[in-house]
Design a binder for these strands. Structure first.
Length: 564
RNA sequence: GUGCCAGUAGCUCAGCUGGAUAGAGCAACGGACUUCUAAUCCGUUGGUCGGGUGUUCGAAUCAUCUCUGGCACGCCA
């Protein structure tokens, strides 16, 4: 058992179920089909440590007012062998459970025992899950959307790992299709412009206008000169793409690495075309009757899949669409590679694609639910209270690299993981660099550094933590101490919830609460200089706090400094 | 026009599988450093949960209508 909360909830459910059974046997209550018994932590501490509303839920079946049901039930609760001291009835019919402090001390034991593995839970049971995120077009640098998707995706992957899933982090390289075509045309235009003059060569309307295209061409010409002028346009574009694309991909890799993200798999879209997987996938859909042909193109049959409209899979020029490749890609994930679950992180502007992709799994016998798409809202950067679009240094659109350079990796990752994915995110650049109490990143890091400082000071005096079973934790009686232990005990529960909701941001908020609770403790209680037994107990508490803060920060890939 | 997401304190956001008196941070105001890091803490102020109706013992949470903002509706990805 590595989640005390779960253990307590199970105890409460068990004693409650048994009490219902015994009431039924004694004829005190009619036979009742129990719902899932909801156990929660009441908002008010005065309402006990945990509570359940089960008496209210069954009031109809019991044919009694909820309070009356509770009054019959509570005396039948057999609390022996549990953490529960007593149960009381309150309000409209809540049953409030008051626990012995032992559960808190057990939580500290657990933390000491598990150390850096404290917080791990076995929700996933080794299920194979693929988390695909960023997957940016390799036609230019990473932007703010990629930055948020990157932080989110990496943290979702990390949370799922802690929750017992077998996680693969994957980047889908869009190195084929239309945008590569445009990339090639843009490079070619810049190349020709270099030799013939800008006004002599038209630039494609939907081309990539970025400076980086010109830079690629300039570098290419420095190495290879004007040899491409005599080639065919096809050869010219291919050569330029073959030159520039790997450079862009390498830059993306490096930007993400400096952002703290390492992938297990870089999956090439082109490889799906080259291997024939795309054609094969379309053919399979055609033969299974999931396509229609009209206007010389092959369409996915929307009606048959419950979609609003048909979607083109193969254009009338014979070139498959992104959609076709994407279906082949997900078929590969589930069938070729056997993932039990695939999570994709997409910007909210792609939400229209969600229903289509899920529906497109059906012909392959893949349940829709196996594909989960996490949509995240876009990011607005603020500087001096105004929307910032340009990098301070370069004057160009702000890239992930610029952002990290300006505010630091820790702050970027922290802020992108502070809000739920569904909410719009305003990123305040001024706040992120501020080294003050306004900045939550430092607030958490400071708590960690403070703890390390206590441990260091005491170690210098020859005082080190004793094994926890040789410490009298019952000496921790102050309310600040209790609050802190409670907070630390929640961590496995937080990981579980973050994994279930795919919402790692709650861990960022959680670690802020841990820091806050610790700071309150710090101001109320001393460790150093207290009587030895109390000092030892507090030393354990402080060390447990260090472990939890460090574990969370590591999970969200933020430094836990020992000094500040 | 249709669909998706959002609307909670001055600001940024939690809470949303219905639960007890709606929370946090920042901002504002007032306090706390002889003592392990004051990048900290303690206290005060601050709300028609966008609005209406409904469902029920109970609604920020569910349903429905409506207003506002963002986005999507392509042989783009």
């Amino acid at each position: 058992m590595n989640n005390i909360f779960e253990k307590i909830r199970e105890q409460i459910r068990t004693v409650t179920r048994e009490a219902f059974a015994s009431c039924e046997q004694n004829g005190l209550l009619p036979a009742i089909e129990l719902p899932d018994i909801v156990v929660e932590v009441p908002r008010e501490r005065g309402f006990g440590d945990f509570s359940t509303n089960v008496a209210m839920q069954v009031s109809k079946q019991a044919k009694l007012p909820p309070r009356k049901t509770a009054e019959i039930l509570v005396p039948e609760l057999n609390l022996s062998g549990t953490y529960i001291d007593r149960a009381e009835i309150a309000g409209p019919g809540f049953i409030n459970f008051y626990l012995s402090k032992n559960w808190l001390f057990d939580a500290l034991h657990l933390i000491q025992e598990r150390q850096e593995r404290y917080g791990e839970v076995d929700l996933g049971k080794g299920k194979k899950v693929n988390v695909e995120f960023v997957s940016a077009n390799p036609t230019g640098p990473l932007h703010m959307g990629n930055a948020r998707g990157g932080a989110l995706g990496d943290c979702i992957a990390a949370v799922l790992e802690k929750a017992g899933y077998d996680v693969t982090r994957e980047f889908y390289i869009n190195d084929a299709g239309n945008q590569i075509e445009r990339f090639g045309l843009s490079l070619e235009a810049r190349y020709l412009q270099h030799f013939m003059g800008e006004d002599q060569v038209p630039f494609p309307e939907d081309g990539y206008h970025g400076e980086d295209i010109i830079e690629h061409v300039k570098n290419y010409i420095e190495i290879h000169g004007d040899a491409l002028l005599s080639k065919t346009p096809d050869e010219r574009r291919q050569t330029l793409v073959d030159y520039a694309l790997p450079i862009n991909i390498q830059r993306i890799r490096e930007a993400l690495a400096s952002y703290g993200i390492e992938y297990d798999v870089w999956f090439s879209e082109k490889s799906l075309h080259d291997s024939g997987a795309v054609a094969e996938t379309v053919e399979f859909l055609r033969q299974s009757g999931y396509t229609v042909e009209k206007d010389g193109a092959i369409w996915l049959n929307g009606e048959k899949l419950g979609l609003e409209k048909d979607e083109v899979l193969v254009r009338n020029n014979g070139v498959p669409t992104y959609m076709a490749a994407d279906i082949a890609y997900h078929r590969n994930k589930f069938i070729t590679r056997g993932f039990d679950w695939a999570i994709n992180l997409w910007g909210a502007d792609h939400h229209g694609h969600v229903a289509r992709m899920k529906a497109a799994m059906v012909p392959f016998g893949i349940e829709k639910d196996k594909l989960e798409v996490v949509l995240f809202q876009l990011v607005r950067l603020y500087r001096n209270g105004e929307i910032a679009r340009m990098s301070k240094r370069t004057g160009k659109a702000i890239s992930l690299g610029d952002l990290i350079e300006e505010v630091g990796r820790d702050a970027v990752r922290f802020f992108f993981n502070l809000k739920t994915s569904g909410s719009h995110l305003d990123f305040d650049l001024d706040l992120a660099v501020k080294q003050s109490n306004e900045n939550p990143v430092f607030y958490v890091q400071y708590a960690h550094a403070r703890i390390c400082s206590i441990l260091r000071k005491l170690a210098e005096e020859g005082v080190t933590p004793r094994p926890v079973d040789k410490v009298n934790l019952a000496l921790l009686q102050e309310k600040e101490e209790e609050e802190l232990i409670r907070k630390l005990a929640e961590y496995p529960e937080e990981v579980t919830l973050a994994a279930k909701t795919l919402e790692p941001s709650r861990l960022t908020r959680y670690v802020l609460e841990v820091a806050s609770t610790f700071h309150s403790f710090y101001n109320a209680c001393r460790v150093r200089g207290e009587e030895e037994e109390l000092m030892m107990a507090r030393l354990i508490l402080v060390d447990c706090t260090r472990i939890v803060i460090r574990n969370v920060l590591e999970l969200i890939s933020i430094q836990a400094p020992e000094k500040m």
